[in-house]
Amino acid sequence: MKVMAARPALALAYFTYFGVLGIFVPYLGLFLDGRGFDSRQIGLMLAIVTATRIVGPAVWASLAERSSKPLAVMQLGAVLACVGWLGSFINGGFGLLLAALALFSFFWTAILPQLEVSAFSFLNNDTEQYSRIRSAGSVGYIVLVMLGGWFYQLYGSEFMPATALAFLLLLVFCLFNLPAQTPEYDTTTPGVSYLQLLRQKVLWIFMGAALLMQISFAPFYGFFTLYSRDLGYSGSQTGLLISLAVAAEIVAFYYAGRIMRNRSYRTLLGICYGLTAIRWLMVALLAHSVWWLALSMLLHAGSFAIAHSCAMQFIQQVFPKAQRGRGQAIYAGLIFGGGGAIGAYLAGLSWQNGAGAAQTFILAAGFAWLSCLLVLTLPKNIANIE
C-alpha cells in the first residue's frame, strides 16, 4: 500500500481519531439514556469503561517498546476497537453493552499514546508544529459534533453505533497510510524504573493536579448533552455550543507553541486550571442563558488546548527519549483512565437524573480549583528525571 507523507498523514490520523471521539464523547450519555439507563447506571458504565484506560495504555506502550513497532500497535488497536464496537449495535441490556464498550475502550487506548510519540518523533520535538498538526484533531472533533447533533435530531440516539463505526473504519484506513517508523532509542541514556518515578515529587504534583482536572471534566464529557437537552436546547444548538468550544481549542492549539515559548508551565497551567473552575461555575449557574453558556465554551481554549500542550511538553522534557511512550502511557492511564473513571462515577451519583445538575458542576469547579492550587506548587524550572 502506498503511504502518505508524514505530516499530512499525521494530520489526517488526528482528524479521524478525534472525529470518532466527537461522536463518542458528547453523545454517549444520550445514547445510554435512550437505551433506558438512569444516571447512576450511566455514571457506573462510564466509570468502568473509562477505567480500562488505566491499564490499557501501559500494556500497549510496553508492547510498542518491546517490538519497536508503534505503528503496528496503533493499527492492531484500531482494528480490534472496531470489533469491540460492533457490540453497541445489539440492545441486549446493561451487561452486554458494558462488555462491548469496555472492549472497545481497552483497544482504543492503543492508539493515542503511540500517535503522540510518533508525532513528536516525526516533528523532531517541535512543539509549534505539533500544536498545528494536533489542531487537525480538533477540526475532526468539531465536524463530528456538528454532524452528530444533526443526526440526533433526525434519527434519535440510535444514530450513534453506525456513525461511529463508519469513522472508526476511516481511522483504520488512515493508520494504515501512516509512514512506517522505527523509534531511535538513545542507548547512552539510562532507563527510568517505576521506583525512580515514584520518588519524583514534581511528577506527583503534576499528575495529581492533572488528575483533579480530569475529574472536573467528567460531568461535561458524560452529561452535558443531557443537561442542555433538559434546559431546552435542541440537538443542533448543543452541537453548535460544543463546536464553539472546539473552535476555541483549534485557535489555541495553533498558537500554543508561541504562547508556551519562554513561559513557565507552572504559570500557564495555573491560569488554565483557574479558568476551568470559573467555566464550570458558569455552566452550573448561568447555563439558562445561551450567551453565558457560549462564553463558558470559549474558555475551553485554556482549560484543554493550552493545558494539554503543556502536559505533552512536560512529558517530552521530563522522560528520557527511549521512555516517552511510557510517560504517555502513565499520563493516559492515570489521568484519562483514573481521573475519568472517578469523575464519571461521582458525576453519576451527583446527577440524580438531572435534579443535581447544578451541584455536579459546582463540585467540578471545586476539583478544578484544587488542581490550580496544587499546580502552583510546582518548581518554576523542571528538569529531566534521573
Rank of each mutant, 00 (worst) to 15 (best):
Q75N: 09
S62W: 15
L10K: 05
Q214R: 06
T16R: 01
T360R: 03
L374M: 13
Y331N: 10
L98M: 13
G337N: 06
G232C: 07
I330A: 09
R263Y: 00
A245Y: 01
F217S: 02
G354A: 08
A329H: 04
G87D: 06
G84T: 09
P161S: 12
P161T: 04
I342E: 05
T182K: 13
T163C: 11
L241M: 09
C310L: 07
W280F: 14
S62G: 15
V290S: 09
F217I: 08
L295I: 07
R266F: 00
N384E: 14
A11I: 08
P161H: 07
A301N: 04
L44S: 14
G356Y: 03
L378Q: 01
A72P: 05
L334I: 15
L147Y: 10
G43R: 07
L80V: 03
I23L: 15
Q313T: 15
Y130E: 10
G208Q: 09
F151Y: 13
N384F: 09
F89K: 08
L101P: 04
A294S: 14
G92Y: 07
L103W: 05
N353A: 10
L178I: 10
G232D: 10
G137K: 03
G208W: 05
Y273D: 02
A64V: 06
R229S: 13
A61G: 05
H300A: 08
L363C: 11
L197K: 11
M260K: 02
T360L: 06
G257R: 03
A294E: 10
V49W: 01
L197I: 10
K2M: 13
L197P: 11
M297W: 00
G137I: 04
R229I: 08
L123Q: 12
D33A: 15
G34Y: 00
Y254M: 13
E65I: 09
Y152I: 05
Y233Q: 07
G325H: 01
I242W: 00
L211N: 06
S228G: 11
L44D: 08
D33P: 05
I42V: 15
A102E: 04
N381A: 14
Y155N: 15
I278K: 06
I90P: 08
C272T: 03
L112F: 07
S121L: 12
I23R: 02
I271F: 00
L293I: 08
I382T: 08
S228Y: 09
I242R: 00
L244H: 05
Q237A: 14
P57I: 01
L269F: 00
S157M: 14
G19I: 02
V318R: 07
Y185S: 05
D126F: 03
G327R: 02
A383I: 10
F361T: 01
G348R: 05
R134F: 10
L147F: 11
I142Q: 06
V59S: 14
S118E: 08
G34F: 03
Y233C: 03
A64E: 05
N177I: 06
A78V: 12
N381E: 13
M312K: 12
V145M: 06
L71M: 12
M207N: 11
D230M: 07
K321W: 06
T238E: 02
V375A: 02
L197Y: 10
D126K: 04
V3H: 12
F176R: 09
L30V: 15
V20P: 00
P219G: 07
A287H: 02
A344T: 04
L169M: 11
F122T: 06
T163F: 07
A301I: 05
R7F: 13
M260D: 02
V172E: 04
A119Y: 01
M282D: 08
A166I: 08
